[in-house]
Amino acid sequence: MDVAVFTVCAVMVLSGAFGVLLARNPVHAALFLVQSVFGVAVLFLLLEATFLAAVQVIVYAGAIVILFLFVIMLLGVDRVDDLDVEPIAGQRPLAIVIGAGILGTTLTALLVAVGGPTGAPTANAPLGDAGDNAKRLGEVLFTDYVFAVELTALLLTVAVVGAVVLVRRLRGPLQPLPVEAMASEPESPESTGPDGEDGETGPGGDA
């Protein structure tokens, strides 16, 4: 039974990954990513990490991929990539060689050197069964790792503020590129544009 579930999930994960790799349309790539992520979530269930399986579906499929799709739709970049052109000569053979190298080193490090994981489990965080996985994870997170949890709160706040600052539309006309600004600088350093408060900005200010 386990073998069957693992095989199906492995096929699902890897075919999804190949889909992301080979899809010409970014929307299709995002949907293949969902497939791959779902496969990983089922594998988490097989490993009795029930809480993480749920979080994986909610965060990846529910939040991250939706964010990708929103950006694709918002920017209108869902045009089809032409995968036949190879912009840098030798890029793909080199990528395959590098990929083979990564695969070889990771497999060697993970499998060949030792016959499996070594070391002793920590005394204060034994793995429970699937039923109380969420409870145990919560207990460990808010006792041993409470400082890291606080740091993630800070990290998420910084990320949200950063995203708002990055995608904010500036009022007034678009500022010139630095090259143009330097070219027009010598006569009047400060007046780089009409500097209207609000005016011919078009769709600006309503995002």
């Binding site: 034994p126 460990v140 998420l156």
Partner: peptide, 24 residues
């Protein structure tokens, strides 16, 4: 899971948080 230790899952939890922040 192989070591019988919960710390692996704790690490995944933090990776998920960092992934979300990174995507944003």
């Amino acid at each position: 899971d192989a070591l019988g230790d919960l710390s692996g899952q704790v690490s995944v939890f933090f990776v998920l948080v960092v992934a979300a922040a990174e995507v944003v």
